[in-house]
Simulated scan of single mutants.
Amino acid sequence: MQNTKLMLTSLPLVGLLALAGCTIPGVYKIDIQQGNVVTQDMIDQLRPGMTRRQVRFVMGSPLITDTFHPDRWDYLYSIKPGGGQRLQERVSLVFDTNDLLIGLAGDFLPGTTREEEIMGGSGGTVIRKAPTEEAEEPIKPGSLLEEIQREVDEAESEPVPTPEPLDPSPQ
């Protein structure tokens, strides 16, 4: 009789200890990804005047199409590494009344593509930078970053040679 009471009271205690073992540090936790994966290459392919179909081809379907703002598409991506801090990125694309891309805002900014660097052109996309918690620090004189920036500013571009046309006449 005494042994059965001891067993009945110790059984829930053993069960609680077994459940507590599930939260031991070092247990593998999965990464949780949600939303649209957006890369800088995708943003660099966007050009003002692109249609909604062209933008959907480059970026994929938007995560949010707001009923009250039909001319705006929102792309959100978040990842929470197992046991780590959750990170989130956001991009909003704005279209005009003719369904042409006129601007973007968010965590990515359009860069210069390789073709634009060669040809010397620039896109006319309206850029609105998303507010950030910390302001960008100015470049300190004499730092490596200042030296690199000076070398970039002093670099001279060379025109790309154009190949001569092929002679269509037989020889």
Score class of each variant (00 low, 15 high):
residue 57 F to H: 15
residue 161 P to K: 04
residue 39 T to P: 03
residue 61 S to D: 12
residue 39 T to S: 14
residue 92 S to L: 02
residue 11 L to Q: 05
residue 151 E to V: 06
residue 114 R to T: 07
residue 95 F to M: 03
residue 34 Q to E: 11
residue 67 T to K: 08
residue 145 L to G: 04
residue 84 G to S: 11
residue 111 G to Q: 11
residue 121 G to F: 06
residue 141 P to M: 02
residue 29 K to D: 09
residue 36 N to Y: 02
residue 45 Q to A: 15
residue 59 M to K: 04
residue 45 Q to I: 10
residue 56 R to S: 09
residue 119 M to Y: 09
residue 94 V to I: 09
residue 105 A to Q: 12
residue 143 S to H: 02
residue 104 L to C: 00
residue 49 G to V: 05
residue 17 L to T: 06
residue 159 P to W: 09
residue 90 R to M: 09
residue 81 P to K: 11
residue 150 R to A: 15
residue 69 H to E: 14
residue 123 G to E: 00
residue 124 G to I: 02
residue 139 I to M: 15
residue 106 G to I: 05
residue 66 D to V: 05
residue 93 L to D: 01
residue 19 L to G: 06
residue 171 Q to M: 05
residue 71 D to C: 03
residue 123 G to I: 00
residue 39 T to R: 08
residue 34 Q to A: 09
residue 54 Q to F: 02
residue 33 Q to L: 09
residue 2 Q to G: 13
residue 49 G to F: 02
residue 81 P to V: 07
residue 9 T to H: 10
residue 149 Q to P: 01
residue 77 Y to A: 01
residue 62 P to G: 05
residue 10 S to V: 12
residue 12 P to K: 01
residue 3 N to I: 13
residue 29 K to S: 13
residue 17 L to D: 01
residue 141 P to Q: 05
residue 167 D to Y: 01
residue 26 G to E: 11
residue 154 E to I: 02
residue 142 G to T: 12
residue 164 E to I: 06
residue 62 P to H: 07
residue 138 P to V: 03
residue 82 G to S: 09
residue 145 L to Y: 06
residue 17 L to R: 01
residue 132 T to F: 07
residue 20 A to E: 02
residue 154 E to V: 06
residue 67 T to R: 14
residue 113 T to V: 04
residue 150 R to N: 15
residue 144 L to W: 08
residue 167 D to A: 05
residue 147 E to R: 15
residue 133 E to I: 09
residue 61 S to E: 13
residue 105 A to H: 02
residue 79 I to C: 05
residue 125 T to D: 02
residue 77 Y to R: 05
residue 24 I to E: 08
